[in-house]
Design a protein around this nucleic acid. Structure first.
Lengths: 151, 151
DNA sequence: TTTGACCTTAACATCGCAGGAAGGTCAAGG
DNA sequence: CCTTGACCTTCCTGCGATGTTAAGGTCAAA
């Protein structure tokens, strides 16, 4: 089975199959004499596994761990569950961040007349937020000017 | 005002200020004789605007539009509202996608004992989804083998 | 033989940012 | 004056998971 057929059968693009091989997520497959990659049913199965894991939002690194656990007959389901739960927490963290943006944006949109006049509470808020929706500046340590150390 | 002071005052890192200048999101600022960038209160105000817009998840391209509208005294608030509503829709689209992943993952996690035994419904589902949580393969047109055109 | 769909490798773009290297500037203190 | 070190400059690299393009080799069918 060629890479194109494997791509169609697995739902993973040929491009990504090569990429996954390159980053060692999947082992190098066999090759024909002409250098074409060939895929077995087992290879296909793994690609489908990867596609489904990607559809659940797992990162490639996490999928690497999932594949290890999958192939490990003596795995503990607790390890899988921990991995999945950590990923779920990450998904929920991202959703919460988006939700906060959406809430703020929604309230601003509802305040905006949306007509021909230039006055706009959305721009007004971006300009000078008075309504308690101010966000914390991302203050990383390196930005603060330090007083000269004595010594 | 130097770039470092502007960074601290605006909450936008010096790195990003230079970047925003480079991609023409903000106009080039004045320079000292030594080549140091200098920032006025007006520049600072714009940087704060950008930071708040970024905090609402607007892309840099969208912020470019917002800045144009902001500076355009004859703008129509309808244009701002449309832009904001489109962004809100995008946020909601992303949240829905995350929510669907989270729902599936959640149900799988609840099915998994999470103990020392290897049997795991999470891996089982990734391997061969039987429970209706299968996702559509991302089938982009270029992947389908076309029949030879005659002509 | 030609055609064109397929395969190969390789390099670059995306997006918003972080990090670092190499070097110039500035202000304070010995 | 010289050093120190915080700050500034430009330029380059990397991230993640792809998409895109390019230049070329292979294969099967007409």
């Amino acid at each position: 089975m060629n890479i194109g057929q494997a791509a169609r059968a697995s739902g993973v693009s040929a491009k990504m199959i090569r990429y996954y091989e390159q980053i060692d997520l999947i082992p190098p497959t066999g090759r024909t004499e002409a250098g074409y990659r060939t895929y077995s049913q087992s290879d296909l199965h793994r690609l489908q596994f990867i596609r489904r894991a990607r559809a659940l939002g797992f990162s490639v690194a996490e999928i690497g761990e999932l594949l290890s656990l999958w192939h490990d007959q003596s795995r503990q389901s607790g390890d899988v569950k921990r991995l999945a739960a950590a990923h779920l927490a990450e998904l929920e963290r991202r959703m919460a961040a988006l939700q906060q943006m959406a809430d703020t944006l929604n309230s601003l949109i509802h305040c905006c007349a949306g007509d021909q006049r230039p006055d706009c509470p959305i721009l007004h808020n971006l300009e000078q937020p008075a309504g308690g929706h101010e966000t914390q500046p991302v203050r990383r340590g390196t930005l603060r000017r330090l007083p000269p150390r004595r010594g």
